[in-house]
């Protein structure tokens, strides 16, 4: 994988230099730039509209639907969805008297996504180590069987898994949301195995000669060397867990354990004054998207490059 990343960057550098040679502005180039800018604008506009609506006063949205700026700007929508506004205040801005507790859902999402990610990355790394750097009979056969799990559409296993959770009596608990994803995801095992395979044998051999056992080599040699891919994997899995909707909808609809995606679905179904509380809804979606946007802003280079090679290499 490390080599794959290098290839990617080298390829990028190579075509950059050649492009500089041929770069001459013409009508085609202007057209191409226009198209690219247009796509970027279409990509960004919904995010702006989320912001614009979230900072608007819900009571006036219908009167100025085409105003491109926030209508009667206020923080009311945020106060409302975080349960900080009184019923009267909420209703005055087209909200509902019933409390929506996005703060609680945020907390649930953080707990669930953190647990899932931690389990997947750690157990995935353990398994990837056994599949790449330890020798045992049937290793590649077992790995192949693991990969076949990718072929099964999630809904196929999720119906029986729902019954399992029900029979264990843990519906509407964090455990029910986390467990099926916690111990393994084929993707994590595959992703890390590719990287571990590329670590030179000599590195580990030196530690082995010093008398380090497999566990110690894993923690002191392999994991530190793989810190880059581990971070990338952690971010990818966190984003994934954060956005999961179908499974939590099945097993955790109770308000106490409701995650953000499920909570937003419930919120959208409420139409307090004839239509949804749009400003509140957009404030809530903004709060749901914000952690991911921040995470991505910090690690965008890693994530973007991982999409490059992971799809092809």
């Amino acid at each position: 994988m490390a080599t794959a990343v290098t290839t990617f960057d080298e390829a990028a550098a190579a075509s950059r230099s050649s492009r500089a040679r041929r770069g001459r502005p013409g009508a085609g180039r202007v057209l191409a730039w226009t198209a690219l800018v247009l796509i970027v604008l279409v990509t960004l506009f919904p995010f702006y509209w989320m912001l614009r609506t979230a900072f608007s006063n819900g009571a006036y949205l219908a009167t100025q639907p085409s105003n491109l700026l926030p209508v009667e700007p206020t923080l009311g929508a945020f106060e409302r969805v975080l349960g900080l506004a009184s019923t009267e205040e909420a209703q005055a801005q087209a909200g509902s008297g019933a409390s929506v507790n996005i703060g609680r859902y945020l907390l649930n999402s953080v707990v669930v996504a953190t647990l899932i990610t931690a389990g997947q990355v750690f157990f995935g790394a353990l398994a990837a180590y056994a599949f790449s750097r330890l020798r045992w009979p049937g290793r590649d056969a077992v790995f192949f069987v693991f990969l076949t799990a990718l072929m099964v559409p999630p809904i196929f296993t999720q119906l029986p898994n729902f019954l399992l959770m029900r029979d264990l009596g843990i519906l509407n608990t964090y455990a029910a949301i986390v467990l099926p994803f916690f111990f393994m995801t084929p993707f994590a095992v595959f992703f890390l195995r590719q990287f571990f395979l590329g670590i030179p044998h000599e590195v580990e051999e030196a530690a082995r000669l010093d008398g380090a056992g497999a566990v110690r080599r894993f923690f002191t040699v392999i994991l530190p060397m793989a810190s880059g891919p581990l971070v990338t994997l952690t971010i990818l899995q966190y984003i994934q867990a954060w956005g999961e909707y179908f499974w939590p909808l099945l097993v955790a609809s109770d308000p106490d354990v409701r995650v953000l995606t499920v909570g937003l679905g419930v919120f959208r179904a409420q139409t307090p004054q004839g239509s949804p509380d749009w400003a509140g809804l957009m404030a809530a979606t903004l709060l749901a998207a914000l952690p991911i946007i921040v995470l991505f802003a910090i690690f965008s280079r890693k994530v973007v490059n991982s999409i490059g090679f992971s799809g092809i290499k």
Partner: peptide
Amino acid sequence: LISNVVVALV
């Protein structure tokens, strides 16, 4: 990277 639900609602 934004969840399906958020995109759908916007």
